[in-house]
């Protein structure tokens, strides 16, 4: 196996950006006909459950689906992140999410190995933290068959950063391989930041989880969301390959 694994959690360590998929593919001219399918009238298109990007009949693109759970304290920006990744308007007010809301996001990806293009369909699962506490059935539902978790903290609330370890222990699943990434939100408010770069570096070293930063205007285009979506795709694809290659092995042990 090429990639080291953290044996205790089974999670792959940080995968270098661009090692599995073509980095910043949305900037390449050959990606245009794929990315244009996730837009409508210059805005990101939202897809209902029965809908998918419409490719011309002669081009066949496989879709791979993943369930991604968004975890983090109330008010860190889970709902806002789901909206951001889906390309819709970010709520300006904080309205508590009183249940589970999911957002499906299609994202075209080109594999580095063989140049194959895939649509990643991420289902982001956003559950309001207070609802999660009130109703016991919500967390198990969010964890059912999840493939990845994004742990959120926000730069303006140190408490949310401290809460990360809680969040991580709550969803860990020893028998299950899950991609785990950390996202710091409200990075646009870095003037008021409550979390230092140094703390983040330490956290990254001790936890082995990569930290991403988001914040600011959605209208900044794909550049705003591409790094996170690509990293997610890359980690998930890598995890699938690892699972596929070591499945017979682990069943023998």
């Amino acid at each position: 196996m090429e990639h080291e694994r953290d044996e205790s959690s089974g999670a792959p360590l940080l995968i270098p950006h661009g090692s599995v998929i073509v980095a910043d593919w949305h900037r390449c001219p050959d990606s245009k006909e794929y990315f244009s399918k996730i837009f409508q009238k210059k805005r990101r298109k939202t897809f209902g459950l029965l809908e998918a990007p419409a490719m011309p009949p002669q081009i066949h693109v496989d879709t791979v689906r993943y369930k991604v759970f968004l975890a983090g304290k109330s008010g860190v920006g889970k709902t806002a992140l789901a909206a951001r990744l889906g390309g819709s308007d970010i709520p300006t007010m904080h309205y508590e999410t009183t249940g589970i809301e999911t957002t499906a996001v299609f994202w075209p990806v080109k594999l580095k190995d063989n140049g194959q293009v895939l649509f990643f369909k991420f289902h982001f699962w956003d559950c309001g933290e207070n609802a999660l506490r009130r109703f016991d059935h919500l967390l198990p539902s969010c964890k059912e068959k999840m493939d990845a978790v994004l742990f959120l903290f926000c730069f303006t609330d140190h408490g949310s950063f401290e809460d990360l370890s809680n969040q991580i222990s709550r969803v860990s699943h020893p028998s299950h391989r899950i991609v785990k990434l950390v996202v710091g939100t409200k990075f646009d408010l870095f003037m008021h930041t409550d979390v230092t770069e140094r703390e983040i570096r330490t956290f990254q070293e001790t936890s082995g989880l990569p930290v991403f930063r988001v914040g600011g205007d959605v209208n900044a285009g794909l550049g705003e969301v591409a790094p996170l979506l690509n990293a997610l795709a890359e980690h998930l694809w890598h995890q699938d390959c690892v699972t596929a290659s070591c499945a017979p092995l682990s069943s023998q042990v």
């Binding site: 939202t46 897809f47 209902g48 459950l49 789901a82 909206a83 819709s88 009183t98 249940g99 589970i100 809301e101 999911t102 957002t103 499906a104 289902h123 956003d126 609802a131 009130r134 109703f135 059935h137 919500l138 539902s141």
Partner: peptide
């Protein structure tokens, strides 16, 4: 705006003390 939901809801007349689940799919 979202793709699907699982919302605990109490019905003000029909079930004010026991929550049901409202499953919604776009």
């Amino acid at each position: 705006g979202t793709t699907s939901c699982d919302y605990p809801v109490f019905l003000p007349v029909g079930s004010p003390t026991v929550a049901h689940r409202l499953l919604r799919f776009q």
